[in-house]
Design a protein around this nucleic acid. Structure first.
Lengths: 209, 209
DNA sequence: ACCCAAGCGGACGGGGGCGTCCGTTAACGT
DNA sequence: ACGTTAACGGACGCCCCCGTCCGCTTGGGT
């Protein structure tokens, strides 16, 4: 008489769970978050009910599916912050994050859509602070223009999301060039004109960098 | 015995037509092209059939609804090309077009979606040439970086489309700042590093500026 | 005042996505 | 080997959008 708590999934259930996550990752990456749930189920070779049992909502599924992408995101930021040259670090962050988003349309959508202020902010606040620090150091080094604000980074990320082509390769290439342009725009330069005022995109930022 | 060809609409029909166009403009602008046709009909105070009778497809409706936006677009380009200072002209074009797109989400979507190469290119080819000429002059004047290509403009437009906030005012503000950054990135500058290669976004361009 | 066709819009059938229920299958512990 | 129950998935009802048909209204010419 097995009365232990079902903290452990049955082997086939676990297998299905993995296949669902794989399918979700593949479809989200290629087509964005708007793919129907049933399509994910179909691709995973399970019924709709199974999909919903494991992940009651698309939000949950996306969160789980993009867990490692999010980890990669953090790693990129950490790497950038660790770089002895803050400007180089910031450039790396911009380039890498843009590429990550370009490669994975679904992640990009999910990432930006949660920005308005979901309680998912587990480590975001912290990450934000880290980037803010990096930016401040880049400014102090005279590499980053002094009127840069964190919202500019969000702006670039949103804009990068707008770049959309049929082939992923083209998309990555375009995104790379875009990142290059953004970096160029951020670089301190004696001849640069003052920018129009920044719009408040991320509400939670007591002191912007 | 009225047997003349019905080249002229009945007065009520014409009225409805205008109301439909107004409703379409309002909804497209605010919510993008994805609004249901019936919502447009509802807002215009007509039945679905009437809407479909006047505009058999959403494409047609959008084309008619955005006719003047398109005209405005051309006017902006013309103005820019007329400016004696080509760099100033180019900057104006970028700023104005970005703002136009920011103010009208539907137009932005429609404009970019037809880019892949619809036969709607009535005057686009010509406009493109005009901008290419403007860019060339700006380069010759030493204001525009020499590795600029026309695709960079498309890139910026696509990116601008990605900027999306709830309030239109915030959106315009953000878009303005974005345009400022783009201009900064395009400006010739002794210290600028080489950019990653441009991706081919608009196929029809024998000689890029 | 009358007529008639241009114009109208409610209503319909089709299709697709959503989330859930429930009868069936098969994993796992004994 | 067997029983229990976790897990499965086909099928259902719901809602929204689409595009069209057809009986009714009304503009406008005589």
């Amino acid at each position: 008489m097995p009365d232990r708590l079902p903290h452990t999934l049955r082997s086939d259930a676990l297998d299905n769970r993995e296949r669902i996550l794989d399918a979700a990752r593949a479809l989200f990456s290629a087509d964005g978050l708007d793919v129907p749930m049933r399509e994910i189920a179909r691709r995973a070779g399970v019924g709709p009910a199974t999909l919903y049992r494991h992940f009651p909502t698309k939000q949950v599924l996306a969160t789980e599916a993009f867990a490692d992408q999010l980890r990669a995101c953090r790693a990129i930021v950490d790497d950038g912050c660790t770089d002895p040259d803050p400007w180089r670090g910031l450039c790396l962050v911009i380039e890498k994050i843009c590429e990550l988003h370009a490669r994975d349309r679904g992640f990009s959508e999910a990432f930006m859509s949660t920005f308005p202020g979901a309680p998912d902010v587990a480590g975001r606040e912290y990450t934000m602070k880290a980037v803010a620090g990096l930016a401040q150091r880049a400014k102090d080094a005279g590499c980053l223009r002094s009127d840069f604000v964190l919202d500019d980074l969000i702006l670039i990320l949103m804009a990068n999301k707008g770049i959309h082509t049929r082939s992923t390769d083209t998309q990555v290439m375009a995104s790379r060039r875009f990142a290059g342009l953004a970096i160029q725009a951020f670089q301190a330069c004696p001849q640069h004109a003052p920018l129009p005022p920044a719009a408040r995109l991320v509400s939670a930022a007591p002191d912007s960098a």
